[in-house]
Amino acid sequence: MAATSGKTAGGRSRSASRTKGGAAKQAPAIADFTKEQELAAYRHMLLIRRFEEKAGQLYGMGLIGGFCHLYIGQEAVVVGMRMAARDGDQMITGYRDHGHMLAMDMDPKGVMAELTGRRGGYSKGKGGSMHMFSKEKQFYGGHGIVGAQVSLGTGLGFANKYRENGAVAMTYFGDGAANQGQVYESFNMAQLWKLPVIYVIENNKYGMGTSIERASATTDLSQRGASFGIPGEQVDGMDVRAVMAASEKALEHCRTGKGPFILEMITYRYRGHSMSDPAKYRSKEEVQKMRTEHDPIEQVRKRILDNGWASEDDLKGIDKEVREIVAESAEFAQTDKEPDVSELYTDILL
């Protein structure tokens, strides 16, 4: 039985990032953030948090249809990695994708308008919450089939190597997807051909309603590449500094031609799997404990205040700016028109 102790999200230990299985060197577990980095991380994570809260609200009003999977609680996982990445690095993920798009600097208006199915959405209203893309921002979706993005992301890495462009494909998937067969087919090829791909496993402990312990024979997902010789680390995914440090190391590994790297981000989603999930599979206390003790945004906020890098008022100012951006996106998403009916038959073939 694999031990699961010591992998609790938000562990305060300085060794939040652990390398196993490969020859990768031990990197500093936690990046030392400057004032500017702390403030940037705070703002970016807050934008995702407020955006998702608004999306939940619009869903409740019937303005967003279908499935809507919120990212609240996991913000540090995309923001920390984006801070370590370069322009040109690609990102791809599954259906819980709003945070990833905002992390890649996609326009919140375009994302929210896609959620409401309007013509100004990133996919002209034809993709929806789970299927959004931005070629300009190097965001490759937004995929609704669990695990499919892992092979696709491996293909992005293949293209990078083919073109020798130095870019890395940041390929996100969850603990649920980690049991799909094509994940391992992809691991094999990525290591065989030394493709620049970071497999980011967002372990939020539940694949829909099934806990990882009930779904996975081994729960240390960072070691899922061991049989292919892919190094992997577990990272405190609630600490944006740990995420950034681990990402820098993994990106360096990929950029120097050493092949793929696995980062298992131990994280937690506060909301249900989707908006229609009553979340009966876990206790309210469990969720509350995470929120109060390990919240990724609160951690940054506290450090900023403790260091005297900003005042409460300064942070309120950031909060206000973020709320304005989100309000603007919600306004646009409600007033923008639905796609023209002629769009039904466009974009099927080129």
Binding site: Y140, A148, G155, A169
Partner: peptide
């Protein structure tokens, strides 16, 4: 060998990889 590539026996995986490479413009 860069352009004529033997894959492992892994249809699901290499098909997804191919589609990803195509999305990236290859």
């Amino acid at each position: 060998p860069k352009r004529v590539i033997d894959t492992p026996i892994t249809e699901h995986g290499f098909t997804g990889l191919g589609v990803g490479a195509a999305m990236a413009g290859l």
